[in-house]
């Protein structure tokens, strides 16, 4: 290998390592702070914790992290299930109907992709409030589902266009209707597309903030992002407890991500294609 190539390789590894350090440092500082005492973090913000001190985790857990975790899980699972089911059904019908009417309906759903939730906060709040749904999980599950549908429908639509039709023909000759073809033939064979869509939506819904902030004010219903911010407001200077709460929220997600990173990356990179 020539000198120049070696130098280039060194610079490449150096740059990648530097950026990786930049990315990892805040996460490491979060973990270090979570194990420190309030005194230690004030005196020595940079150092390692002297001993593993779980007090801060106890404080965070007792203030409601367990409730927030459960709420986030319920809301995410419910929303993602509704998104995948509704988008799958709609995309299947649309991908199998060449009529102009259906093309228009597809374009209409796709147009929903461009509308950001921040631009409709006021009317959405007014509608949910008028429906008496404020402070109920439905107040965020239904909007989450709606805002996930356009993109997921686009994804499934492309997938179903490439789906081999022989199986469907065979099922139709056996007397199966559209609905049973969808559930018995299409769904069992769409595993990769479903997984990819579900991962994508889970990342966004698990972390969604503004709607949860607006619609749920009762502490027993708050999801993680809103709950964490509430902890920070309550414990102005108790960084160890705040960081312990954050660690409880962030570390499981990071572990799942590392274990399944191939699928996460594939799912999110799909946006570019």
């Amino acid at each position: 290998m020539s000198n120049r190539a070696t130098l280039l390789l060194g610079v490449s590894y150096g740059f990648m390592s530097l950026w990786s350090l930049f990315v990892m440092a805040p996460v490491a500082l979060m973990l270090a702070a979570a194990f420190k005492s309030k005194r230690a973090i004030f005196l020595d913000p940079l150092g390692f914790p002297d001993n593993l001190n779980f007090d801060a985790f106890q404080r965070a857990w007792d203030t409601g992290m367990n409730v927030f975790l459960l709420n986030s899980a319920i809301v995410t699972v419910a929303s993602v299930a509704v998104i995948v089911l509704c988008s799958g059904m709609a995309a299947y019908v649309l991908a199998r109907s060449p009529s102009r009417m259906m093309q228009l309906i597809y374009l209409l759903i796709v147009a929903g992709f461009a509308v950001p939730v921040q631009a409709v906060l006021v009317p959405l709040f007014q509608m949910i409030s008028a429906a008496g749904l404020l402070n109920s999980r439905l107040a965020i599950i239904l909007p989450y589902a709606a805002y996930g549908i356009p993109f997921t429908t686009i994804l499934f639509y492309a997938f179903f266009l490439d789906f081999p039709r022989e199986l469907e023909e065979a099922a139709r000759l056996d007397g199966c209707g559209k609905i049973s073809i969808f559930f018995r033939i299409i769904v069992p064979l769409s595993g990769p597309a479903i997984a990819s869509a579900a991962i994508f939506q889970t990342v966004f819904i698990w972390n969604e903030f503004v709607l949860a902030l607006l619609m749920l004010t009762s502490p027993s219903l708050k999801t993680l992002p809103v709950g964490i911010l509430q902890l920070q407001a309550e414990w102005t200077a108790d960084w160890p407890a705040i960081m312990a709460g954050l660690s409880i929220a962030v570390v499981p997600v990071l572990i799942i991500f590392v274990a399944a990173q191939k699928y996460f990356v594939r799912s999110l990179a799909g946006l570019g294609k």
Partner: peptide, 11 residues
């Protein structure tokens, strides 16, 4: 380098 993408922005 991709990992921060899955962390909540509030966190």
């Amino acid at each position: 380098i991709f990992a921060p993408m899955v962390i909540s922005t509030v966190a």
